[in-house]
Amino acid sequence: MAAVAVGGFVGPLLLVALGVVLPAVLAGVIGQLARLTLLLSLPIAISAVLVNVFFFPGGETVLLRLGPITATAEGLVFALEILVRILAISGAITLFYLTTRPAELVVDLERRGVSPRVAFVASASVQTVPAMVERAGQITAAQRARGLDTEGSAWRRVRGIVPIVGPVILGAIGEVEERTMALEARGFTRPGRRTLLWWPPDSAWERVLRWAVALAVPVLIVARVAGWLTWLP
């Protein structure tokens, strides 16, 4: 959110360096973060850059002509601004995913008074992706063992989508039902507050940092609206 508020591309880049890259280095997940962020953002980043560089409305400084389409400097600058925002958003989401244990997230949300149902939905969302990837891997192996050719031509690969995606979706639906019953059986829907036996440690400097980040966002929005950040390219 701060990266969008700041404007330009130097400000968001600084925010990415301070808010995403530095914590990722400290947490020892920078390699995974780089890979996953690229995977997440590459398709949308490529299309955003191409569209803005070649079709930016009002672009006057011509950099390159390719038949009827023209790349402009104004389009390139705008594309860079979009690019760093995409990197900031996908980087922040990936960092959260890589450094947050679902169980700790649920406990902490409940400790702060969030309903167990809402906390569970948050946790399930974080857990769903790796579980689906693991399930898809096993299903692919089972179908390949029955002769499904996933290494052949593009057409053969397309033909392989239904036998793989079908069980992934059916299994996920079945799992939701099983999980719901297992939760019910353990009194999940019982009304009232829960007694927590444990919650994640939350040191004083972590609290200070969190509040600082929370305050920085409205401050940056005000600064942007007031025109105090025009010196940043």
């Binding site: 299903i139 390949r144 063992a145 002769g147 996933t150 052949g152 239904v162 036998p163 299994g171």
Partner: peptide, 22 residues
């Protein structure tokens, strides 16, 4: 050999049927 080629010789039945039925 590819898995598809080997599947003509070695048939493997997985433990969990729900991870293949479609």
């Amino acid at each position: 050999l590819t898995v598809a080629q080997l599947a003509r010789t070695v048939g493997l039945v997985f433990q969990d049927p729900d991870r293949q039925i479609f």
